[in-house]
Simulated assay, not measured.
Amino acid sequence: MSKYLVDKFLYTIDRDPELVERYRDDPRGTVEWWEAEQAGSILNCVRAETTTWLKFEPGEREALATHDYPRLFELGAHPFLTLTLFIAMFERDHEPLGFQKEYARRLGHFQLPYPDYAT
């Protein structure tokens, strides 16, 4: 897994309210757009500093495209990045702290040691 690339996706989407809404409404399209247009920019530098080797693995792409945060956690995505982005997208659909409880419930089957999320 390219933990760096998945974490970069989660981080950059979470930092832009318009991208949060786009990802909420069209996750597959947002993942495809981001991979094609944004993934190759090294550390978000000038356009001349790009690469073509940064691509999601199929499992990563599918987990991102289906908002499957338990699978992302299993693959090693940083849990704080998934939590903050998914709170931004889905907290409004739950009672106060409801999404955080749902997140904990859906990840509750994981046992120590947790998947390694170091990049």
Rank of each mutant, 00 (worst) to 15 (best):
S41T: 12
F73G: 07
R92L: 12
P58G: 13
Q100R: 12
R15V: 07
E62W: 04
T30M: 10
E62A: 10
I42V: 15
D14R: 12
M1W: 01
W53M: 09
L10Q: 06
F9C: 06
A48S: 07
S41K: 09
K55W: 03
E49D: 13
L54N: 08
L64Y: 10
L107T: 01
T66P: 00
F90T: 07
A104I: 07
D14M: 09
D16H: 10
V20N: 07
E95Q: 15
D116T: 12
A65Y: 04
A36W: 02
A36G: 11
K3R: 15
E95S: 15
F9G: 08
R61I: 03
P17N: 11
A39M: 07
A118R: 14
L54F: 06
G40K: 00
C45Q: 09
F99L: 11
T119I: 07
S2Q: 03
P115K: 12
G40R: 00
L72V: 06
F80P: 03
K8L: 02
Y23Q: 09
P79T: 09
F80S: 14
G98W: 08
G98I: 03
G108P: 10
I13E: 08
E60L: 09
T51I: 09
T12F: 06
E102T: 14
G108E: 03
V46A: 14
L72D: 03
E57T: 13
L10P: 15
K55E: 00
E95L: 14
R47I: 04
Q111T: 15
V31F: 04
Q100C: 09
P70I: 02
L97G: 13
A88C: 02
V6N: 05
